[in-house]
């Protein structure tokens, strides 16, 4: 009586002219991940955000997207260079410093409205951000690039052509750069390796006059390189908190 392995080999050979390795599971590549620095989120993501891929952090205002991105960038800027492409010019250096971001290792690109530019090039902030991100990805050497579309209206964000996202994905992969996209919704579609959906849970107060922090919920919306295992399934969501800087020793 033939063994199951021999039987599988026999079937594969018989159909290999149409389906090569029909019954052999495709070898999966284990993607390198970079920790976010938030234990709850890292546990949810099996270690962190994927390196050399696009990760989207989505959610409405005050849902913890920027805090999560800053926590990640703080880890990456410890010994590497990062860039923050800021569409709405909303980046707050004080908050970044309070989160531990090494500001000397952070390249901040502040997009501006076309009327402010010296040259009369009618590029909108979004166009500038996409061009800047493309340049930075092509230059290489950045461990993480944050494309901050958090204040961009979803209808504008969805108008970003898919070709741009494909190009970003290829460039991020070749330069081993984590491209983080902050937005109110997911824009990169199939080019995104990971989509995180953030939401605010509650605020933490003290004495009725002091805001001490927020509790956020993060949910794994989509993951391209999910490693399926026979064991227990990971929880799809996790809760984490961000404290005010004045909760400990100093204010942001």
């Amino acid at each position: 009586m033939p063994s199951s392995a021999a039987l599988r080999l026999q079937i594969e050979r018989s159909v290999e002219h149409r389906f090569p390795s029909a019954l052999t599971p495709v070898a999966r590549t284990i993607r390198e991940v970079a920790p976010t620095g938030i234990a709850e989120v890292d546990a949810l993501l099996d270690g962190g955000l994927p390196v050399g891929a696009i990760s989207e952090i989505t959610g409405p205002e005050s849902s913890g997207r920027t805090s999560l991105a800053l926590a990640f960038v703080a880890r990456r800027t410890a010994d590497q260079m990062c860039a923050w492409v800021d569409v709405a010019d909303a980046f707050d250096p004080e908050s970044a410093a309070a989160n531990g971001v090494a500001l000397q290792h952070l390249l901040w690109v502040r997009c501006c409205s076309a009327d402010r530019q010296v040259k009369a090039k009618p590029w909108s902030r979004l166009d500038q951000a996409l061009r800047a991100t493309d340049l930075l990805l092509q230059a290489g050497g950045f461990a993480a690039i944050v494309l901050d579309l958090a204040d961009t209206a979803p209808e504008h964000g969805r108008r970003i052509p898919l070709a741009s996202w494909f190009r970003f994905r290829q460039a991020a992969d070749s330069s081993r750069c984590c491209l983080i996209v902050l937005g109110k919704a997911g824009y990169a579609q199939s080019s995104a390796a990971l989509v995180l959906e953030c939401a605010s849970v509650r605020s933490e107060t003290a004495g009725g006059n002091l805001l001490r922090g927020f509790e956020f919920n993060v949910q794994r919306g989509r993951e391209r390189f999910t490693h399926f295992s026979a064991g227990a399934r990971k929880p799809p969501a996790s809760t984490w908190s961000a404290n005010a800087a004045w909760k400990s020793d100093r204010r942001a």
């Binding site: 920027t66 805090s67 926590a71 703080a74 410890a78 980046f91 989160n99 927020f214 961000a242 942001a252």
Partner: peptide, 11 residues
């Protein structure tokens, strides 16, 4: 950096 916990970020 000495910061180990995420802080509330401002935009």
């Amino acid at each position: 950096s000495k910061t180990s916990h995420a802080r509330m970020a401002l935009r």
